[in-house]
Design a protein around this nucleic acid. Sequence first.
RNA 1: UCCAGCGUAGCUCAAUGGUAGAGCUCCCGGCUGUUAACCGGGUUGUUGGAGGUUCGAGCCCUCCCGCUGGAGCCA
Length: 432
Amino acid sequence: MKLDFVHIADIGSHVGREVTLKGWLYHKRSSGKIHFLQFRDGTGTIQGVMAKSEVDQGTFELGEGVTQESSVMVRGLVREDKRAPSGYELTVKSLEILQLTQDYPITPKEHGPAFLMENRHLWLRSSRQHAALRVRDTIEQAIHGFFHREGFIHTPAPILTPTACEGTTTLFQTDYFGQPAFLSQSGQMYIEATAAAFGKVYTFTPAFRAEKSKTRRHLTELWMVDAEASFFEHAENMQCQEGMVCAVVERVLNDCQAELKTLERDTAPLEKIKGPFPRISYKEAVELCNKAGVQIEYGEDFGAPHDTAIAGSFDRPVFVDRFPTSIKSFYMQPDPQDPTVVLGSDLYATEGYGEIIGGSQRIHDLDLLLKKMEEHKVPYEPYKWYVDLRRYGSVPHSGFGIGIERTVCWICGLSHIRESIPFPRMLEKIYP
RNA sequence: UCCAGCGUAGCUCAAUGGUAGAGCUCCCGGCUGUUAACCGGGUUGUUGGAGGUUCGAGCCCUCCCGCUGGAGCCA
């Protein structure tokens, strides 16, 4: 596409030429007879220098009056300059103000999280937020790329569903032509069906959790990638997860150095993310916790301090598998060696970022699934279609789900999940 | 749902129970290499709300509202 203006990201290929930029005034410093005008256009930022001796009086006054976040069109000469962080500067020849902004709320000074969240629609323009969401985009692209290279087909799961996936978790309810419907909390069961149709599949869909969780790790609306593969057993499932995580980290390190620098992310821990990841059993994890001084009984589920103790013992993500049947979902395949545990795994990220993936081999035996449903008091009628998958050409199959926002937090080194998505939906918060 | 902390200027925060302040934003002036620029001057208040104790409450007490973090649950 041929445009009559250039993007800042491409500025390096226009050195020595006069170009037009369209964007916003990010920041300004002035020194009497010279203005330093920081422009941004979404692709990057560049400093424009406007000297009084080099422009006419009207232009210089425009430079003096232009305010933070005014939309502008600027024409100038591109130069290389060692003093500029990006290596390039613009000698401004003319400036047109498309709209003069008055009293932009987010100043270059400090602000609290409540104020910034009230102004999330504007906060997105700030460099840190901009960088994190660009990394998010790269992560999403890397995931799509990985699955397609591995022969997975994207089969979206529905968001409006007639029943709860796992029954226990709180769901958002809505009205569907007079019938109750629920916003999906996972696409997993639906892609077990598409996996039987296409072999290897994934879905990249929002998931909704109405739990009253109020921490820096929780959203009520989050994005999940669920993958499912026919004929994959527990070991292949973990291998696939490991491959995906490595591909994502590698891609971000390759494409997002500037963003990681803006985020002040230490990339050394990320450079170490290479397979194979350690694999320990739930039993070993319990022993590890108790040895580390974080008490836990065999049979209890891990809490936040246990996550930290487990993940803190490794410099790569770690799989914990073979959880007691009692603390996991009804559809997980029991371990043939020890039916009191299931062939399910959680993957913990490094540096205390917690669980990012949960996966398991699913029960493929019809009678066993029916028995487990009865034990867990899962009603048959709404799940008849799910049981059918075990009735018509059932095969061993496995899958997993990865939380996008937690992955973004981990890779970007963010301290709060609200910065990992443009418009976070948190407990009782839905503005803007 | 439970626990903890916090609500003072547009923003970030001060203020022994005794006259409500600073920095920044913004406005005016100065400065030709600034990087959250700097220097000088100026504008800015129903101290979240209601009630109470007190000669006197931003500060103490009660209730309510809002915000932030954590627990549980999870990704």
